[in-house]
Design a protein around this nucleic acid. Structure first.
Lengths: 352, 352
DNA sequence: GCCTCAAGATACAGCGCTGTAAACTCGTAT
DNA sequence: ATACGAGTTTACAGCGCTGTATCTTGAGGC
């Protein structure tokens, strides 16, 4: 069965193809009677426009690429959902490109690999540097996500990692914690997320008049929860005194919870643990996880706003947007009736 | 900056557009010297073929749609990853369509909404019935996933849910458990997954000469872990004796773990808990979760195999494929040195 | 030296649609 | 009665590419 085309409809309705096209697009200046006749023909034949053909002539594909390291990492799958929904709201389809953080895959994202396929790209880079991005990026509208490389030429959306980390520290300090560790610095880590969060952690301590203790910055072998748990175990074994841990992500926090349990230390009574990204992981750990919560919905809508502006012809220099973050409070930090959970007037994201 | 087209390259190289096209496609009968000249022009101009135009003429889009209920549900994000990778291997791109299990969204998936956009659809239906699928499905190649509606006319890939549930029961029985509950039947559930798993659960008990006790089939209000936990709590409060729980999914199992902990019951010593889908959730719960493990990789490759066969012209009736499953054994069931974990000679999927 | 034939290169149509500009149809103003 | 213009409808080109048919060329056979 061959696909029904515009001409087929036109023939049945006895009009020109353009009139059918006009009806399809709800062009206002079509006589009501004709519109009805054409619509009847469309329904009768079950006509559906061929989007590829439309795209060729309009130059718009109605699709955007979302390039992320891993589809099935909770943070990215949750973010993908927000982006997919926001995109759907704006009549865009999303095609997902998984880079696995590999350099060549990240290069491919920019090298017009999707030539003529997508109207724009939302890209969370990991390995690639700012210079390479600037150099490889052609003219497909691009919005960058995350704390990675950010050339001044491209649009960028992120949360204020430094402030968020400092707030997390303040949150624990307000509950009387004084020996707050940072988990963790990853060996051979090429990302900037950890740097920023570590910086904010130190800044938070200094703001409170405390002296950051290098022994409290825990180093982790790789990005697995096993490695982070091991780092906590080792620190405790070394006799490092700890009563709170700010983690660079929820996976690390999950590892920390395991290590504490194994060491017979109660969370949050003995050690308070604070995760990062507010992923679903935090709902399933025991105890459940308090976590820095990037406003993923704002992230998604801001990214799409910037991207669609570019698609619609905006040609200015790179814009950098900070979206809000909060703190989702669960059981891994002590509950307090006194102090507010979220400093600086930002609303806490409700726990799920 | 205008995009470089085939004609631009042809002009620079001093050849016809078709010759450039032939070079791009590695058509063998091109003189080496010419090939070099054309390639030089391509490189010099930075030419990238316009895929939309190519698609219009070839009729192939090189894209498939993956329609799933929720991108950020661990099972689906993990499955998506497998499918995306398998698709990439076969030079297809994946565009993800989120239905949220809603009927109208599921209808839209089939109604050639992607008309001319994708070469085929991989669809995990939830709400839509077999009849509607058969009726709405046009001629875009389609492969169905999951235990939902399955019209005989469409290809279908799934695991043997009944057998897997029976095996899960046998696994617990072999460890001496006798009061094994099923968690849970969801009120107003329109999916078939639960039915099959419940059936297998009962079958497993009967095969072992046990009489299924209706009191052990726990009913749950909705699909949240909170609701499943509540169901377990209520059962324990009613005084139902339980020493093992087979859950319809990992989320329910997570809820069950919480309820046991709250009731002061040790897992796995007091109650063994067995999840379903082997999602990442099971890595983060305490204790970690033993779970029925569909071979997601096989699921993905089988689905793509069937789909590409259809795309390549296969026109036969619907094929139904069963892919293997295993059991990922973690801490929520007792470790046994004696009995094999996985009955019927199927290999256990290694724990992550 | 001429014919044949295969390899190499090209011209051209057309995939299905939309934008542009031109054409046509009236009711109203002149 | 004629011109005008707002409102409708249409003809046609062309988006960038590839498939088909066709043409050109040069090597090899007689």
């Amino acid at each position: 069965m061959k696909r029904v085309r515009l001409v087929d409809v036109a023939e049945v309705a006895g009009v020109s193809t353009k009139t059918v096209s006009n009806v399809v697009h709800d062009y206002p200046h079509v006589a009501p009677e004709l519109r009805l006749r054409v619509q009847a023909a469309i329904d009768k034949l079950g006509y559906r426009p061929n989007l590829t053909a439309r795209r060729l002539v309009t130059g718009r594909t109605g699709m955007i690429a979302l390039a992320i390291p891993e589809i099935d990492h909770p943070y990215f799958s949750e973010l993908s959902r927000q982006i997919a929904e926001e995109a759907a709201r704006r009549n865009y389809r999303v095609i997902i490109e998984q880079t696995l953080g590999k350099l060549d895959a990240e290069h491919a994202v920019l090298e017009d690999r999707e030539a003529g396929l997508v109207d724009g790209i939302i890209f969370h880079p990991v390995s690639i540097g700012a210079l390479s991005i600037a150099k490889l990026h052609h003219d497909t509208p691009l919005v960058l996500l995350g704390e990675g490389a950010m050339p001044a030429t491209s649009d960028h959306v992120m949360i204020d990692n430094v402030a968020a980390a400092a707030e997390a520290v303040h949150f624990l300090l307000r509950q009387g914690r004084r020996r707050i560790a940072f988990l963790g610095v990853v060996e051979d880590d090429v990302t900037f997320s950890t740097d920023k969060r570590l910086l904010g952690y130190q800044q938070g301590l200094i703001e409170a008049g405390l002296d950051p203790d290098p022994a409290l910055v825990l180093s982790v072998k790789d990005f697995s929860p096993e490695a982070s748990g091991e780092a906590v175990r080792a620190a405790l074994e070394r006799g490092v005194s700890i009563d709170g841990i700010v983690c660079r992500d929820d996976k690390f926090a999950a590892g920390a919870l395991r290590a504490c349990a194994a060491a017979g230390i109660s969370v949050p009574d003995g050690i308070a643990v604070l995760g990062w990204d507010d992923t679903a992981i935090g709902k399933y750990t025991t105890p459940s996880l308090t976590s820095v919560a990037p406003d993923k919905s704002a992230l998604a809508s801001t990214a799409l706003e910037l991207l669609t502006e570019r698609i619609d012809g905006f040609r200015g220099v790179g814009r950098h947007r900070i979206v809000p973050h909060g703190l989702t409070i669960r059981q891994s930090t002590p509950s307090v009736s006194s102090g507010l959970a979220v400093p600086q007037g930002k609303p806490a994201v409700p726990s799920a």
